[in-house]
């Protein structure tokens, strides 16, 4: 554990809880992509199956349980409790275009051919692109609520902080997992456009709207 990873994890946690609280408080999931949330639920499920097979630390296990619960809680709020507020007309990204290539790639580039390892790798590839339906939705509606912008910024920062963590781990403990590093870089690049808008607009008190 180092400061970069801890900050990354806390940023990830903040993002997930921010979204949950936002939906709960406003009684609405308008502007949130249900498809991205479905992808994140698949990501957490396939990655954290190892809760049952390998123990790293209490910290890791608790975080995994929180991520899984919050993810399914978000799906429950979006597709059941506040379903009438779900803006499915603007959530039109075809997620099979992400699900299938990620699955194929996880069979091609993987550390070891075991079920758990392929599922873990799949979760890494899918996570890298899981935000695309949400970003697509923002670009279609041309705007995002400020709280949604904070959510996206925290979620994007998490993998950027993990990149610093991997650089640190490379020099301090010879850690080098190219699968997760390259996927993490791709994931962070996808947010760059959004980061720019967030810094130039949202942080100056303006609403995020596209020109």
């Amino acid at each position: 554990m180092n400061i970069f990873r801890l900050c990354g994890d806390l940023s990830h946690l903040l993002a997930i809880l921010l979204l949950l609280v936002k939906i709960w408080k406003t009684r609405s999931c308008a502007g949130i992509s249900g498809k991205s949330q479905i992808l994140f639920a698949i990501v957490y499920t396939t990655r954290y199956l190892d809760l049952f097979t390998s123990f790293v630390s209490i910290y890791n296990s608790v975080m995994k349980i929180v991520f899984l619960s919050a993810s399914y809680g978000t799906l429950y709020l979006m597709f059941y409790k506040f379903k009438p507020t779900y803006d499915h007309n603007h959530d039109s990204f075809r997620i099979l275009y992400l699900i299938v290539p990620a699955l194929v790639l996880s069979f091609v580039i993987v550390h070891a051919y075991t079920l758990m390892e392929v599922l873990w790798t799949y979760s890494i590839y899918l996570e890298a692109v899981a935000i695309m339906p949400q970003l697509f939705m923002v670009s279609r509606t041309g705007e995002a609520e400020t709280i949604t912008s904070h959510y996206l910024f925290a979620l994007g920062s998490y993998r950027a902080l993990y990149i610093l963590n991997w650089i640190y781990r490379y020099y301090t403990e010879d850690f080098l997992d190219l699968i997760v590093i390259i996927a993490g870089i791709v994931q962070t690049i996808l947010y760059c456009d959004f980061f720019y808008l967030y810094i130039t607009k949202v942080l100056k008190g303006k609403r995020l709207s596209l020109p």
Binding site: D9, D50, S54, V56, A112, T114, W120, Y162, V180
Partner: peptide
């Protein structure tokens, strides 16, 4: 084959 990769991150 009991090869297992250790993943210690989230």
């Amino acid at each position: 084959e009991s090869f297992k990769v250790q993943h210690d991150e989230l």
